[in-house]
């Protein structure tokens, strides 16, 4: 579904991605892990053009993503570390905004879909609240519902639980697990090793802008093949 070839990205003189190649199949769940500054988030952001890459190519269903900006973003949903809900809109308006403005869905239909999504993330009762009245975990669940309202084919998660209090991590991970069960294609940058091990089909381990390992989680966590991965896992597990 997504093919990445020789992806390079520089910020000024600092090369943060040094040639990443991988592919993501439909329905696959990919966990991207690695130390901070390894380029995980940049890699993810390149996939929906929040960053433009300098070299290499990204193909979505065979088409170069550089030539399909708005169309691409309709197909790819993204969830951010800091939620980025629209604070001046209610929860319901947050979820219906893009379908109405971008897909030109009628208000009624958008609200029906939104209420349904809010139900699946367990927040039906918060539809008319403003984001400032929600806990971190609730905000992130709304953000997931907001992305899903666009009916994306791929969901990108950029450290979705890193800004949460520990007791709220579980509720967000639970929502993500439900998505996995529904067969959603997902790319998740995360520090939740247990979660990665449990739900991912593949683990991409990145370090210093390179893709160091691309492995099934069982093998990666039990028996990593590189020293870098071993050293990293020793620190975090």
């Amino acid at each position: 579904m997504i093919d990445v070839q020789g992806l390079k990205k520089r910020f000024g003189n600092n090369e943060v991605l040094k040639g990443i190649s991988t592919s993501i199949k439909k329905g696959e769940v990919i966990a991207v892990i690695g130390p901070s500054g390894s380029g995980k988030s940049t890699f993810l952001r390149c996939l929906n053009l929040l960053e433009t890459h300098d070299e290499g190519s990204i193909l979505l269903e065979g088409k170069d993503i550089n030539e399909m900006e708005l169309h691409l973003r309709k197909k790819i949903g993204m969830v951010f570390q800091h939620f980025n809900l629209f604070p001046h809109l209610t929860v319901l308006e947050n979820v219906t905004f893009a379908p109405q403005q971008v897909l030109k869905t009628s208000r009624n239909e958008a609200e029906t879909v939104a209420l349904d999504l809010l139900k699946t993330v367990g927040l039906s009762d918060k539809a008319n609240s403003y984001p400032s009245n929600l806990s971190g975990g609730q905000k992130q669940r709304v953000a997931i519902a907001r992305a899903l309202a666009m009916k994306p084919e791929v969901m990108l998660f950029d450290e979705p639980t890193s800004a949460l209090d520990p007791e709220m991590v579980k509720e967000v991970l639970q929502v993500m697990k439900n998505l996995v069960k529904l067969g959603m294609t997902m790319v998740i940058v995360t520090h939740e090793m247990g979660f990665a091990k449990e739900v991912a089909d593949r683990v991409l381990f990145m370090d210093d802008g390179k893709l160091v390992e691309d492995q099934e989680p069982a093998i990666f966590f039990e028996n990593p093949s590189t020293d870098r991965a071993k050293a990293f896992l020793e620190k975090v597990l």
């Binding site: 929906n48 929040l50 790819i76 951010f80 980025n84 905004f97 403005q101």
Partner: peptide
């Protein structure tokens, strides 16, 4: 992050600015 969230949802520049 507001701009990024709007961009990630495919919201065009004009709509993003105005709304």
């Amino acid at each position: 992050g507001q701009k990024e969230a709007a961009m990630a949802l495919g919201v065009p520049y004009r709509t993003m600015m105005l709304k």
